[in-house]
């Protein structure tokens, strides 16, 4: 049952990643079917664009998932400039916020590189045990040997955040944004607002 749930979650993720590709495409209509030995992903659905490389990759990753089954391990590392949270630890799932959209990482995720967006990483260690960590920024690397490295400049457990301090930071950043004159100062204030909004959301 658990493995079924997992593969459906996986499939949902594949769909999102395909739609993400699609968003970059053009406005024409398409009648798209994508099926693999173990699962049917789309049947005559209207999508915007599919890169064949992408589709091929989806199929391989789906078959790979099917072949290796449930016993797979994830080699997870989460380190930041202030603390090391995980080193080569096996965890069930990691949800990360990135510039190309939030996504979940399960064992045997398609290899990818991504840039962290300020927000909360959720690490599902074992059944029922999870940890929420707020990251400022950094990189996510998923390699084809199922090792996952997340490196952040600054990361703290969500419990260490102070809700009222976060609100102060947000209002200060907002006022800086409105008073910013140069293009650079505006962008800098905008970044601070973006981070502060994420902080307020996470802390409350």
């Amino acid at each position: 049952m658990a493995s079924l749930m997992k593969s459906s979650r996986m499939a949902a993720r594949l769909v999102t990643s395909a739609t993400r590709v699609a968003r970059r495409g053009y406005a024409d209509q398409m009648d798209f079917t994508l099926a693999s030995g173990n699962k049917v992903f789309y049947t005559n659905q209207n999508v915007k664009q599919v890169s064949s490389r992408m589709a091929a990759r989806l199929v391989t990753s789906a078959t790979r998932l099917a072949r290796r089954g449930y016993a797979d391990q994830m080699d997870f590392t989460l380190a930041s400039g202030n603390k090391v949270f995980y080193t080569n630890q096996n965890v069930k799932q990691v949800d990360v916020p990135s510039f190309s959209g939030a996504f979940g990482i399960l064992p045997n995720h398609v290899p990818t590189l991504a840039i962290l967006k300020p927000g909360v990483i959720t690490v599902y260690e074992t059944e029922g045990v999870s940890q929420k960590i707020f990251v400022s920024s950094g990189t996510i690397t998923v390699n084809d040997d199922s090792s996952v490295q997340i490196i952040a400049e600054e990361a703290h457990p969500v419990d260490s955040l102070d809700a009222s301090a976060a609100r102060d930071v947000l209002s200060k950043a907002q006022s800086e944004l409105s008073s910013a004159s140069s293009e650079t100062a505006k962008a800098e204030a905008q970044i601070a607002v973006e981070v502060a909004e994420a902080l307020v959301a996470a802390a409350s």
């Binding site: 970044i191 973006e194 981070v195």
Partner: peptide, 11 residues
């Protein structure tokens, strides 16, 4: 900038 903002919001 993001790291600095995060540090300001800590307990």
């Amino acid at each position: 900038i993001a790291a600095r903002t995060l540090r300001r919001a800590l307990k």
